[in-house]
Amino acid sequence: MSTAPALNGDIPVGNWIDRWVPAAARPYLRLMRLDRPIGTWLLLFPCWWSVALAADGGPDLRLMTLFAIGAVIMRGAGCTINDIADHKFDAMVERTKGRPIPSGAISIRQAALFLAAQLAIGLLVLVQLNAAALWWGIGSLILVFPYPLMKRITWWPQAWLGLTFNWGALLGWVAVTGSIAPAPFLLYGAGILWTLGYDTIYAHQDKDDDSLIGVKSSALRLGAKTGPALVAFYAGAVALIGASGFSAGLSWPFYPVLLLSAGQLAWQALSLQMNDSADCLAKFKSNRLFGWGLLAAIIAGKVL
């Protein structure tokens, strides 16, 4: 018997939100994508990597917890911004027309008020960090708000998402040390390439609808060249991660564990069925495994 969740477009139905959450609150949790946590993991891992990279020994569990809470809230805020900006496009795409705003479950005004509440909570988390990290965190909003517009003006909105989603690679280091250094910038560059890879895979799900409604993406730009491009993106990411670890003075166990983790990226690039939406989604979600593998590599390089 299949265990795949029932879906309304890309929204799981009959899950914990439907079972345990009051009906009035359900659209807001779905607006945050709390029932689809992969985006939170992809936002969180660069923060955790950087905290571990900057640590003196094992990572600071208090900071790891704060970043986990912040990732949930800020990923939800980012989804809210995106859905407010894209609600007309979402209404024209089969996969997204059931989302809370295009379906009419939440109005634009309600979504904007909810966004303000999420940003306020995010600020409460941010002020728990040192002063330098506070300003670096506020600076990330310069990237967050324009993101929904990128798919209208460039074939590479995935690159802008990379700039946005991997800001934690810089913020985590500053939260530990109070300053910046080459190692987190190398990790940030690696994260951008990693995001270019996984979000290009994700974008292949919508390429037919995107083409019809005039939305741009790296999936449409690369087309049949997606496979070689993924190899290049992921190879560049692994090389920059290695350079970041070397710059941070990680010990030798970091490198073999990194190579094992890189095998997960190679599997994605070499086995992707880019015309199969289910395979694209599965490969996209599998990046959580790479995230855990790299975290293990960094911790191994610090404590062994």
Rank of each mutant, 00 (worst) to 15 (best):
G291N: 13
F145M: 13
I153G: 01
W252K: 01
W252C: 00
A232H: 08
V174D: 07
I121R: 02
A23M: 11
R288N: 11
C79K: 01
L161I: 10
L134K: 04
G227S: 10
L61N: 00
N287Y: 09
L222P: 03
A77V: 08
N166F: 08
S50H: 07
A282Y: 05
W49N: 05
L281K: 02
F290S: 02
S179D: 15
L187E: 08
G293D: 10
K207W: 15
L115N: 12
L143A: 14
G70V: 09
R288H: 12
A52K: 03
K88P: 00
A232C: 04
G104Q: 10
A25L: 15
N130H: 11
A248D: 05
V174Y: 11
L265R: 00
A219G: 13
T3R: 06
S211F: 02
D208Q: 14
A232E: 10
A229N: 08
F185R: 05
F45G: 02
A85F: 15
V21G: 03
L295I: 06
V176S: 13
L129Q: 03
S179K: 11
S244T: 07
Q273H: 12
A183V: 09
P22N: 11
V13Q: 14
W194T: 10
N82P: 12
Y234S: 02
G223R: 13
L295Q: 01
V51R: 02
S271I: 00
A219V: 04
L170N: 06
L289V: 14
L220F: 09
F233S: 03
D199Y: 08
L260R: 10
K207Q: 15
L260K: 08
I38P: 04
M92R: 15
G245I: 03
P148T: 07
W173T: 02
D10Y: 04
A235S: 15
K225V: 00
W167K: 01
G263L: 11
F89I: 14
Y147M: 12
A116P: 04
Y234R: 05
Y198C: 02
S140H: 01
G14T: 08
L134Q: 13
Y188P: 09
G14Y: 11
L196Q: 11
I201F: 07
L265I: 01
R75V: 11
D60R: 07
S103T: 12
A203Q: 13
K207C: 07
K216Q: 14
A133L: 09
W173P: 03
